[in-house]
Design a protein around this nucleic acid. Structure first.
Lengths: 225, 225, 225, 225
DNA sequence: GATGAATGAGCGTTCATTCAT
DNA sequence: TATGAATGAACGCTCATTCAT
């Protein structure tokens, strides 16, 4: 619901209708949260619709009232997480005026804030949504494409600011994809495979340094090797 | 079965017993191949034991004779793919005498050879084995740890050869993990999400360049930024 | 509601109460029509209460205000259709002064008018209400009994007029049931299984001829064989 | 399985394989019988797969091993009943050398033997399979078409033997359909709605008389009216 | 009277796994 | 060893019905 609609509703809807709508929104979120937690904790397969309903303290039917099916639950979650990630990374990048530091800050934001605050969301986007079904895979692709697209745009703008250009036609995109890959596997490893969330600060900084070096190397002219 | 055992068998086993053993080995491989293809094509969940048995032209019972259960099938596949990957990457690295070029060659090997020749194996290690069960996840971790360990070793040796050292205690490991992340997502994107297998050469080269730059940046003293 | 009540209401009820009553009646009919269409088109099972409510542009609750349950909806429909059928057939029979021609006209009326004008009603009485539940089946029996009874009465009266009598104790009833069976299957076949609604005139005439012949044969004395 | 195949099997299959096959066939029939009884007694909807499995003393999975789904169970039943009906009616007709008496005998066979011996089969073909799903409806149509076709053929052959011809192009078919309708509704009424199975002999005879009269009336030239 | 969100029992179906032969 | 029929727990989903507002 956009802000505009909200205002419209406030004008046109009765008090009780407003409350009902609020409750609806709330229930939707409660169910989604329950699903998020269970998918992350038990795995998408093992988390049954009944478990989710129980966790959200509603009936199975209610879950199906708000979501088309189990897959839809996962997709909505995916969409929400993707949206949030883009917002966080994008806003961080803008703050630092489109320089290489933007990548630094966005990376730190991701590792230090997002990963430590929302490990469940990371689990869902990087683990529980992988290889589940053609439909989910398609949505994943779209979300990753958008994220990669954001990074790509940033890359292009920074390179223009610095007066550099990329080596091959693919270069910039490959770099963007690579950066996403680093985010993904580093988060996965230290969050799910080693539980080093306390060290996420150092780890994140190292990963970001690696990224910065990699980017520099892709600009024509002044390679390091 | 190790080489040593095989030699022992050749000595002790009768001709017919040898033949039987050969057939056993063959069947094991046939089933594994069938599973690989179906897991990659249909997805781990959708590929039923019956489908696998049919594809391998054996009975369901036979599959259970050679493999403990469906999970075991996935794990054996994972193990085999991990083993192969390590061998390919490691041998490529050794060829070029532990220099930065080793990373280049290993990377090219992965993108140009492995990905294009064995997309099913890539699908299994990077997609179908993700988030399937605690047991599988544990094995995945082990396999990725070994691969990361190899990269880490190479990194350390190269840095020693070059007289460099890594910034933080994590640094080298994070770089290794990052490299794995790049391999993974770049392969995933261009193999499953865009079908650019013809361009894998250029893409691989770009990814490798990015990696080399990133590595250089991690050495103390001569950062690019 | 009988005519008598309506008159009472007109006297006692206020204008606004009358309007409300009219609206009530209208809604009842709207819902019933929606159910009729959906039952005929989608089938009794597939047509959900929500679909019916949507089609009638009311809420699910409203449907339950006017009808006890889904079964009731079907029963009311059945009742209405049965009533209409009896009226049409009966009035046609009366017009032609209780002769064999009455059967002719009634039959033609059914095939040429009723079937072509109300295929949905035919679908419900001959298809969608079959084997649905003991309660519905009981109502179906009652309705068919009444229809058969009408035919039976006509048969008896015609035979008396002609000075004939029926062979066995069952005879007349069996003939009546047989006539109903002919109506049913001929309509079913050419309406739902072959879509020959344009030819319904010829088909109806043939069916009626068959019936007339059959009836004649049941009278003692002058059989054809 | 045809007789020929059976002989082949006896030659090629081992004793144990033969026994296994026999058991398979037996199980298939046991399940089908259980379904028949429950569909007829409880109704298609109410009879759940679990109930059927329990009645057949097998597991739910076994039912799904032998039949694709619940619909398939109904279709197989329908097919078997249709086949049996055709065989019974056809053989009876052939016995009496293609005269009007053939219709008499076939009718008596149906009412006196089939209806009284297999009321469940009658219930399924005339009640439980009606309006269940498009697929089932299609099969029903095919089966009724075959039955009607048989009657039609008989009708044509008898008319040729008697040197008569039918009035209109539709005539003969409509008569065939009418006969089927009489069979259906008379059986339905006296089997399910009045439980007069003891009187089925008289009832059947009356119905057949009606049919014979109807047929005669359809021949050109010598109508009764 | 009217609404529509919520309920939850019930059902069809799947499929990994077992085991008698 | 190999077979494949049999098992049965588990799960996703539907939908008639209710009831607070």
């Amino acid at each position: 619901m956009t802000e505009k609609n909200k205002t419209d509703n406030e004008k046109t809807l009765s008090k009780s209708a407003q409350r009902r709508q609020r409750e609806r929104e709330q229930r939707y979120q409660t169910i989604l949260s329950a699903a998020e937690e269970l998918f992350a904790k038990e795995g998408y397969q093992k988390a049954s619709m009944e478990m989710i309903a129980d966790a959200a303290e509603v009936s199975v039917g209610a879950v199906y009232f708000y979501f088309k099916n189990k897959e839809d639950l996962l997709i909505q979650l995916l969409e929400e997480i993707g949206f949030r990630l883009r917002k966080i990374l994008g806003s961080e990048f803008k703050k630092t005026g489109e320089s290489l530091d933007g990548f630094k800050n966005a990376g730190q934001m991701f590792f230090e804030e997002f990963c430590t605050q929302y490990p469940e969301k990371v689990a869902i986007i990087f683990r529980e949504s992988v290889g589940k079904s053609p439909v989910v895979e398609e949505r994943r692709r779209e979300i990753f494409d958008k994220l990669t697209g954001d990074v790509l745009n940033a890359l292009v703008r920074v390179s223009e600011n610095l007066g550099h250009s990329f080596k091959s036609g693919f270069s910039a995109e490959v770099v963007a994809v690579s950066i996403m890959g680093i985010y993904e596997r580093v988060a996965y490893k230290y969050l799910f495979w080693r539980e080093s969330s306390e060290d996420m600060k150092i780890i994140g900084r190292d990963a970001v340094d690696f990224i910065i070096g990699g980017i520099n190397n892709m600009f024509n002219g002044e390679t390091c090797t």
